[in-house]
Design a protein around this nucleic acid. Structure first.
Lengths: 161, 161
DNA sequence: TGGGCAAATTTGGGCGTCAATGGAATCTTC
DNA sequence: GAAGATTCCATTGACGCCCAAATTTGCCCA
């Protein structure tokens, strides 16, 4: 079984503010009935996952200079903007006001797999950011090719894999 | 048994959105009943293969600075634009909306072997790109000969078409 | 070399199960 | 008791799994 969050999906929010977590994400969370969330720093998105989400943030904190401004701010955001939501019997969560404010989410949520966590975006913003990300990654690749060689020549396959 | 994806084939999409993976590709996938896919960056194509497909990208990620913008963008594209599809008893997958959007695929899929992975294209776009690729390869070869003065050694073409 | 049979592949559907969604009923909290 | 939350149940459509038909490919033998 796959042990990370992949792919993306857009689900609806009902009158009571509930959304289904995509079924493919549920086993990765471990069916613990609880979802940890954290406001993304540079993006209007919420990061979510199992307990590892917060633990990982704390590991990153541990690598920072505890007397730096970055440490103070990151610690503040990490703990202050995080939350844990209950997952109901149908795999749904209830969006909080904090989540709505930070993301602009109204009646639809884009769930985006990010490996060891996933994100929740307002769908239009997600699409815009994705487009931007694709272009920049394409540019990154072009720059690397300019250094290493041509497009087609570099495409030799290798056996194993 | 052959351990790479070679050759190409065009298969039909049925009413339920299913396509057969070419039988010659199946043993390379390892009959795991699951196919990993990833939107190609520079092309309207989907890349597909076993779990190594995503793992390869993650190895590249692991070499990058986790706090850099490049890391964030690449991680976003790698995980958010990838997917894993179930393969049914007859070796078919169900195309997702994301795949249709990215490729323009409607009722036919061109499967193109690329060595350790394969691609799925809308057939007309595939043919156009193949033609373009052939021309560029020919031009590159001419340029290289002009530089080295030497004759290009045995560069066999893939039977293709 | 060509015909024809056998096997494998591709394609088409039926149907039960699960996921996504909507809503009612029960609880909790203040 | 009111507002919000949790649990339970119903509906609809998508997906998984099974089986069958139609093609295509491979192979054997004349």
């Amino acid at each position: 079984m796959m042990d990370r969050f992949l792919s993306n999906a857009i689900n609806k929010v009902d009158k009571k503010g509930r959304v289904s977590i995509p079924a493919s994400f549920r086993p990765v969370l471990g069916d613990q009935g609880r979802l940890y969330t954290l406001a993304a720093i540079d993006q209007p998105a919420i990061e979510a996952g199992g307990p590892q989400l917060v633990e990982r943030g704390e590991q990153q904190l541990a690598q920072m200079d505890p007397f730096s401004t970055e440490y103070e701010l990151y610690s503040f955001v990490l703990h202050g903007d995080s939350d844990h939501l209950n997952v109901d019997g149908e795999g749904r969560i209830i969006l909080t006001d904090n989540i709505r404010e930070h993301t602009g989410i109204d009646d639809k949520v884009a769930f985006v797999g990010r490996g060891y966590f996933f994100q929740m975006w307002e769908p239009e913003r997600f699409k815009a950011y994705r487009e931007e990300a694709r272009e920049k990654v394409a540019e990154m690749r072009r720059n690397r090719q300019a250094m290493t060689g041509g497009k087609f020549s570099a495409d030799k396959e290798q056996g194993g894999g």
